[in-house]
């Protein structure tokens, strides 16, 4: 079977992770979970992996039965420590990588989990709330924005509300001017395309298109003018080991292969 876009995205995430880093996984993000676990089972056995309130090392686990069940309390069976929420959030500045989603994501990587509309008393849609993201994204060493929805409704010129600051109003020094200790968003990851931020302006830029998506399709899915580099590299090939571990140990149920 051909590799699917979601599998490619998981491999991209896996390759961004270095052995020994401290990565924190939230709930309800199966593709980032797959990427992190793939790294952990291959080149990053010494990952400090923090899932919910638990610290755990999963590198010796033969396989995971169900990817959607990783970030839930059943992970307790593998934990080597349990933290109070307070201890966990006190560790944010030590974390190397976290993930954030959004009901809106803008041109400069600011994200919105608060809601859509102008007047907070008359919102068109009220979102679930910032969860931990305002502080995590201000402070974590770097983060990836992840969403399954590459659509003009989500990718807007300007967020109606900002729950986590990316590159603010743009520019390399946007975060420095605010004084934010963390490194900001590095990639925006979707199953159709991987985007980064242009040096200097910090406007969102296309990095990889993931077939069958095309450049034109991706441009049409974004509600602002995406920076398109003069030449685009093809998405790097997956190795046989990556595919083998992903399918047989990380994602046995084939969540990332659904619909293909």
């Amino acid at each position: 079977m051909q590799v699917t876009p979601k599998e490619q995205v998981a491999v991209f995430i896996s390759r961004q992770i270095k052995n020994g880093q401290y990565v924190s996984l939230g709930t309800n993000l199966p593709i980032p979970s797959a990427g992190v676990l793939l790294a952990h089972l291959t080149h990053a056995p010494d990952l400090s992996l923090n899932i919910l309130s638990y610290f755990t090392n999963l590198s010796s686990i033969d396989y995971f039965e169900d990817l959607t069940q990783i970030a839930n309390p059943s992970v307790a069976k593998w934990a080597d420590s349990v933290m109070a929420l307070e201890t966990l959030i006190n560790s944010i500045s030590r974390m190397d990588l976290c993930f954030v989603g959004g009901v809106q994501i803008d041109n400069y990587g600011n994200s919105n989990l608060i809601g859509v509309g102008q007047d907070p008393r008359q919102l068109k849609f009220r979102g679930p709330g910032p969860v931990g993201t305002s502080t995590i994204m201000s402070t974590v060493k770097k983060y990836f924005i992840f969403t399954n929805a590459l659509t003009p409704k989500v990718f807007v010129e300007k967020c109606d509300f900002i729950s986590a600051v990316g590159w603010g109003n743009g520019g390399d020094d946007a975060r420095r001017q605010l004084g934010l200790p963390g490194g900001g968003p590095e990639y925006v990851i979707t199953p159709q395309a991987i985007l980064d931020f242009e040096e200097g302006t910090k406007r969102m830029r296309l990095k990889y298109v993931i077939p069958p998506a095309t450049i034109e399709e991706v441009k049409g899915c974004v509600g602002f003018e995406l920076v398109i580099p003069d030449s685009l590299e093809a998405f790097p090939e997956l190795t046989a080991e990556e595919i083998e571990v992903l399918r047989n140990r990380v994602d046995r149920k084939g969540l990332l292969r659904e619909g293909h």
């Binding site: 608060i114 201000s138 900002i162 600051v165």
Partner: peptide, 13 residues
């Protein structure tokens, strides 16, 4: 003091 709300809409909300 806190960082979380800096640059976000928390200040207005």
């Amino acid at each position: 003091p806190a960082w979380g709300p800096v640059g976000t809409s928390l200040m207005e909300l």
